[in-house]
Amino acid sequence: MKTNKSKKLFISGNEAAVLGALDAGARLMFGYPITPASEILGTWIKEAQKNKGLQFLQTEDEIAAGFGVLGAVLGGVKAFTASAGPGHILMQDSLSMAENMRLPFVGVMMQRGGPSTGTVNFSQQEVSLAAFGGNGDGLRIVYSASSIEEMYELVKKGFDSAWRWKFPTLILGDGYLGKMKADILLNRKKSATIKSSPILKEGIISTNLRNCYSSERSLGEALRANIADWNKTKVKIAESETFMAAGAEILILAHGLVAAAAKEAVLELRQKNMKIGLWRPITLNPLDTQSLKRAVAGARRVYLFESSLNQFARIIKYELFGAEIDIKEITKPAEGFTPEEIIGLIK
């Protein structure tokens, strides 16, 4: 793969994810093949063959991949994994441990159609799983990438977030984003950022970490501290993009590739003098609620598009509860939207 700074690259979203991990200082990847995320592991292996400082392990399943990441993280190395659908389900085991023990964990999840084996292509059906999939309260950072360039940026940023805030961090792509290739101009830059040091500290006094507590009170105390951290930092973590929403009477809410299609639809409808805009979350969890509220405030009509039944809508409606905004939900689980289709549905 070409890595020249100024050069145009012809790469896939999966390859972009690897570049993001490399520039974030990742040294170790654990993975198990699954479409449409397999090329992340494949590309990483190629990189590791060129660079002796990088390691990888193709594990026996996604459970082992997730826990391998946690072991490496305990040892102070920036490690990550990637998966999709059924593999993402298996990784909930390790994600839940990361959430409990505040271990940095980075996973790139290329959503495929579900439930079950579903399809290998595309969906936005892993939003709830990513944000709220564990037996906890969803203190996880979830990004949704809308382009190949953004996949690079968000994977890089995901490492920084995970290591800075110590919440497990997932970067979602909508299936096709992993597989599709495009000419892109990447401004590749190494993260200046957070160093990784051993969490098992190797000090004079030992570090003894647990995830099992002996009383409601002791677990409750630990959870309250984590929730307080989450509430304190979520404003710093939350990100969104507002596109042509100033003065818009019609607002579209969408994320990931659906938002990319919606953006094209907005551009075309703007040329036809329709006052339309787009609000797109970059983090699905935590949500940039203040920006969302500002964006919907001036709109007469709000449309929400997603490639799942209502996983995105639930997050939005929870945040907008009481705002008395009528949202028209147009949802197609595991199927995509074209800009033309969106234009047709809005007219």
């Binding site: 170790l28 654990f30 392990l57 459970i63 082992a64 826990f67 391998g68 490690a79 023990m101």
Partner: peptide, 21 residues
């Protein structure tokens, strides 16, 4: 230095740890 893991997952965690250290 000790970390509790999950049921059945300790070998996997220590495999990852050993690769790092």
């Amino acid at each position: 230095d000790t970390a509790q893991t999950h049921h059945g997952r300790t070998a996997s965690v220590m495999v990852g740890y050993k690769m790092a250290r």
